[in-house]
Design a protein around this nucleic acid. Structure first.
Lengths: 248, 248
DNA sequence: CTCTCGCCTTGATGCAGATCAAGTAGGATT
DNA sequence: AATCCTACTTGATCTGCATCAAGGCGAGAG
């Protein structure tokens, strides 16, 4: 979700930094109070599965800190990531009983949850919450469609460059950094998780990261920390024309 | 979008069969009248492009009859379909100026359009329109995620079987057919369009269709008309566990 | 009737990425 | 310091799909 969205207001964030951002920057005091009643926090450790596909899901939630993923698995074990949730992203669907995907914490994670039933009731009484959710869902749909282009038509090298660009930009947006020096950030995913994101094997991911490093498109410190000396070069490698897009 | 959705009511559809279905099965008379004011029809021929990516788009619309596609294109011409719009599907995003994808009619097509500005204003005054749009968008997001699994992890044979199953089921749903005999329907896409849908080349599409035919999974009359003698067999070939899913 | 054009099929070959298989690096445990 | 373990890297080989190339077929036009 786009952190620069015009409805956000970092000023009015109280003790729950996400609640306001995600659903109710436009709420009045009574509504905030009502949300407060149905809200609770949950913490997870890296690697922990939050919900298995098919499980009953009686809450909706915002990611506060950390990273979660949505994945689908076929009977024979093939896995595809279908959602990457960074702080401020929303998970859960009003009006659905059961989770359609596995939700997993890939780093230590804190989520701000709302009990589903009262949240749904509140949504009906409070239209702008639904409107905000619609905006967020439409953004997610756009991201999914960019992702489909990546999965269907990009080469392994382009996929890796795209992933690095996506994470780098979202990270920069999160830290609200005013353009200074080369983009630098940690990859918050294992090679295997990247492979599940990109529809590749982890060996191919590793090889292509090495290739981009060898060719000077990225630099690595350790295995996770990335330095992008030239963002335009990276975007070119990613096969991206649209450079406003690609926000997951 | 799911035609069996509980908010649909085929009874209350007037001269615009889609208007009610898509956005306002719950509208009262005044609201219907208001929609009437901002509504108009547009027809397109097979193959015609409705909007190019980047164009200004001053309407939202429902497909009445025929089929449209959303596609993305890279600079070098690689193309990926990211949306398949069948009758009753919605296209356009309130709050967005420009189209992010090419929209093309793949068959003769009639759309029921609403001028965007007044539609947006009406959405704010009439919450259940927004709620219905949220439901539809969430369904589309689910479909996009199934599609991502297909693009990222399925083999060419599984992809073809999945596509045939998706189209066959949606066709069956549209005709509200009460289970009778083997599933039979037309593929509304050229081999090239199927390739763009599936992230394959048209040659591979052709070969795999031939293979499924040879193996008795499907039968063909001409090049487009498909008979599915055993749906379970087809779904097995598609690698589908979830057999409620896969509605695009 | 036959020409033509779009759409489709089939064959031959090549290559990107999967698969199989070792081996390395670094952090935690003892 | 020795060990173990997990995450990662790199090499060798295999294969599924892309690519290049040559027809086939059916519908509409003349």
């Amino acid at each position: 979700m786009d952190l620069t969205h015009n409805h956000f207001s970092s000023q009015d964030c109280g003790d729950c930094p996400i609640r306001h951002r995600a659903v109710c920057a436009r709420c009045d005091a009574r509504e905030l109070d009502e949300l407060e009643q149905i809200k609770y926090y949950r913490s997870f450790e890296a690697g922990q599965t939050i919900i298995w596909s098919g499980d009953r899901m009686d809450f909706v939630a915002s990611v506060v800190t950390g990273i979660a993923t949505l994945t689908q698995t076929m009977e024979d074990g093939r896995r595809q990531m279908v959602g990457l949730l960074l702080p401020s992203d929303f998970v859960g669907r009003p009006g659905r009983e059961r989770a359609p995907y596995d939700v997993t914490a890939t780093t230590d994670l804190v989520m701000c949850c709302f009990r589903k039933k009262p949240f749904e009731e509140m949504m009906i009484r409070t239209p702008h919450i639904g409107q905000r959710l619609l905006e967020m869902t439409l953004d997610e749909l756009d991201a999914a469609r960019e992702w489909m282009l990546l999965l269907g038509r990009k080469t392994a090298r382009e996929k890796i460059a795209s992933l690095v660009a996506i994470i780098g930009r979202r990270d920069a947006a999160l830290h609200l950094s005013g353009k200074k020096g080369p983009l630098t950030f940690d990859l918050p995913l294992t090679r295997e998780a990247m492979a599940d994101y990109l529809g590749l094997t982890l060996e191919t991911v590793s090889r292509q990261i090495s290739a981009l490093k060898r060719d000077g498109v990225i630099e690595l410190e350790g295995k996770r920390h990335v330095i992008v000396p030239d963002l335009d070069r990276l975007l070119e490698e990613a096969g991206d024309d649209t450079d406003g897009g690609l926000l997951v």
